[in-house]
Design a protein around this nucleic acid. Structure first.
Lengths: 214, 214
DNA sequence: GGATGTGAACTCTTTCACAGCG
DNA sequence: CGCTGTGAAAGAGTTCACATCC
């Protein structure tokens, strides 16, 4: 399969596999079968084999996958094998949560700068030791080898912020603002909209009536 | 089309359409065409028409969609037209952010209780006036007409917490814990895993080389 | 035997083209 | 004439069945 276009859905699943592999590795395991990996992450075993088959033959028939090797391969595929410097834009409640989040480091993310427009925040230092700078100077990230941005600003501020980030050479953006943003093709945006996820939850909940267990 | 199974992808897009409609309504607009709605949310106009066609004929040919009516219809489809009482499980940094999040109320969510296992937190009152209770008493939600839960607990605590929530009659869970959780079929879980989104961002960022704008 | 890797069938989703209506 | 609504075609992604290899 090696020479096909990779489905986006496969790329979405790879980080999930990776996390599971890291957990298994921590428990001292050496090999894992597609079946047991599948059970852990909640997909089918053939889905897992198909996903890996897009990238190469990582397994050993009759044995399974070498956990350490597979984890390294996935990291390489996802380009998580290099540390990337990131900037936080909009320092609020969400950012405290983000900074407290264990696992950004695991995925090669190093938050080295933070910006805000609020004069009350500028100059303050965050939990991780980074001092908040004035967003007016966002263009300085260009000289600081920062390629990723996490933005958590109000809706109206999102598009202008993204425009400035794109101009400053940022290549990837994780957007927590509740709206679509437009960027040049060379910039990748992933929007994570909490309210949108929440809003579709009731759809799956029957108003009343019989229920059966699983 | 009315009598088909609804694609999950359509359900995922409906909240996005709804938000856009609410913004347009606030600006005093009365009608919107599939084309202009499409431009606002970043999909194609035929995608929008197809999505709506699963539920009925909401538009007027030659004119477009009545914004108020369409918003009401979508709310009804998503079952956002009733207030749902929700409980927060695990009160940490993320929860402060969640409580500050404008827009839970917009989608009919009312956070009426909070639980934690940390004795230092139990008894304290959150920003929204809700007092944090001992998670050991989570079963009391059964008598309090609470149908949704938002859980933001460490990975190891997630499955036990979810089991207790399911036993307490919770019907829908928004899971921020970084892992898969198993539930009875009658319970719907939506997992929102920030690290998993972040981990796939570098995949789309070329290591180096030529770039073209859009 | 036991597990992987993969073409082929199948299912789900998007796109198209245009009929139908206001 | 403009814009919606929809069957049909095309495209993506998943599932299956089994050949293949350790």
């Amino acid at each position: 399969m090696r020479y096909h276009r990779i489905p986006d859905e496969t790329v979405r699943r790879l980080p999930v596999y990776l996390r599971c592999l890291m957990v298994s590795a921590n428990q001292g395991e050496r090999y894992i079968s597609s079946r047991s990996l599948a059970d852990s992450v909640g997909v089918n075993s053939w889905q897992i084999r198909k996903d890996f088959s897009y990238f190469g033959d990582f397994g050993t028939r009759g044995v399974g996958y070498d956990i350490g090797r597979l984890a390294r391969e996935i990291k390489k595929i996802l380009r998580l094998d290099v540390i990337r410097r990131a900037v936080l834009v909009g320092v609020g409640d969400l950012d405290s949560a983000l900074l407290a989040y264990p696992g950004f480091g695991v995925y090669g993310l190093d938050i080295v700068a933070a910006f805000d427009i609020d004069p009350k925040k500028i100059g303050k230092t965050m939990n991780n030791g980074v001092t908040i700078e004035d967003f007016a100077r966002i263009d300085t990230v260009k000289e600081r080898d920062i390629s990723l941005a996490i933005i958590a600003v109000p809706r109206a501020a999102a598009q202008p912020a993204v425009d400035k980030l794109a101009a400053a050479g940022i290549k990837g953006i994780l957007n927590f603002a509740p709206c679509k943003v437009s960027v040049p093709k060379r910039v990748k945006v992933i929007t994570l909209d909490i309210a949108m996820e929440l809003a579709r939850l009731p759809y799956y909940i029957p108003r009343a009536g019989r229920q059966d267990d699983s």
